[in-house]
Simulated scan of single mutants.
Amino acid sequence: MTRLTTRSATAKTLSFSNIDAKANQVLNEMAWFFGESDVMQKLRREVVACSQKRAPVVLSGENGVGKAILARLIHTLSNTGGRFITFDTASVAPSQLEVELAHAMQNTARDGQAGTLHLIGIEYLPKVLQQRLMQHYRTSCAEASPIAPPARLLCSARQPLNELVEQGLFPEKLYQDSASMCLEVPTLSAHSEDIAMIAEHIVKQYAGDRQVRLSKEALAVLKAHTWSSNLRELAGVIRSAVLTSPRHILGAEDFEPLLQKSSGNADTSSMSLPEAAETCLGRYFDGLRGMAPAPELFSRVMSEVEKPLIENVLRYVRGNQLRAAEVLGINRNTLRKKIRDLGIDAKKVGKS
């Protein structure tokens, strides 16, 4: 999604006494994001409170709810200076995680100020590294850790920490220590009354010099839709409507075909890998309607998955086979053999 800017001319202005005038101005420019619902106003107060502390913060919520927007806002309100660096754990080979993480931390410093590290996917970090990282930040003992921390650590997770603990993806003791610093970001459906304000802001971002607005019928359609990918999906749909329709007043007819397409695309986009696999396999067995499944089903499923898996990894690493082998966790020669046997054009896929 194209980055949304913050300025909003229609939102209600509020002032917080525990932050300065400049921070209050930034916060009010983000009023479109928080809307007027009780659940989002509560989140707004929590964000302000967290921004005034140096303790690590964990932002949890589904894909597309705006965790990255909030992380950057907390950094800005903290007034700690330095760089805001994003580190996505899912984009780094497991063997390189600690080295790359240390490098990202060092890059947050600028002009004598330590900056902020936004760590996406803390659940994908090995537990040992999770503990070392979080405990180090909580105690501020830089000398006791091989990793030099920035002034702020902001973490994002797809699920609440208590659920990650139950799944064995986050240490229970660490959760107990971190529970007071967790902010759960609501889904868009949990504050659907804010959709009109959010939608109007997004329209302005993409309309440019055009005077574009939404009809009552268009707003009704947007409010009634189930946003599987939350704010990200809403922004994508509105962007497409604004850029493709010549009208100055967008109606329901401008959104209905886009929403049908978006629903199909979002069906698995907000799911974890196991959830997506379960959904696709469920559809396969539902489609059998009493008929026998394909013979040697295990081998067939594995072979069906192998080629698109390797192609997607190659695309993700832009054709770098050494990096692809690290991501897949296999030997480079093994990967080369699979590429040859499966008839994959590695150069073409890497450039796509």
Rank of each mutant, 00 (worst) to 15 (best):
T76P: 00
D38G: 03
A114M: 15
M40T: 10
V128N: 15
H103E: 12
K127H: 15
R138L: 15
F84T: 03
W32Q: 04
A68Y: 09
A21M: 14
Y137G: 10
Q41T: 11
A109H: 12
T116F: 01
L125E: 03
T76F: 06
G61L: 00
V48C: 10
E62I: 00
Q52P: 07
A90D: 10
A71E: 04
P126A: 11
G61V: 00
S95V: 13
S91D: 10
A49S: 14
R83E: 09
P126D: 11
N63F: 06
A102M: 11
H136W: 09
Q96D: 15
E29T: 01
E46W: 03
Q131M: 12
M30Q: 07
A55D: 15
E36L: 10
M134Y: 04
I69L: 12
Q135V: 08
L129I: 10
I120V: 14
E36Y: 07
V92W: 00
L27S: 03
H136K: 11
F84G: 04
M105E: 01
S37M: 09
A23K: 07
M30S: 09
E36G: 12
V57K: 01
L101N: 05
Q130Y: 03
N28D: 13
Q41F: 08
A104F: 00
E123M: 04
V47E: 01
A114T: 08
P94I: 15
V58S: 00
D111H: 15
T89S: 08
E36H: 06
P126M: 11
M30C: 13
Q135T: 10
E46S: 12
I85P: 01
G81K: 04
A90G: 10
I120G: 01
A21H: 11
I69C: 13
L117G: 00
Q130V: 05
G112W: 07
E62Y: 02
E100V: 08
V39R: 04
G35R: 00
N18G: 10
Y124E: 14
E29H: 07
K53Y: 13
L27Q: 02
Q96M: 15
G81D: 03
I19S: 07
D88N: 13
P56N: 12
V47R: 00
H136L: 14
R54M: 15
K53E: 13
A49P: 05
E123H: 12
R83G: 02
N79S: 13
D88M: 07
E62G: 08
S60I: 03
M134D: 01
A114V: 13
H75W: 05
P56D: 08
L119F: 03
L101P: 02
G121H: 02
D20A: 09
G61F: 00
L77N: 00
L101R: 00
M30P: 02
A49V: 13
G66V: 00
G35Q: 03
G35A: 09
N18Y: 08
F33Q: 03
E29Y: 01
R132N: 06
H118M: 12
A21P: 01
R83S: 07
Q41K: 14
P56A: 12
E29D: 12
A49H: 06
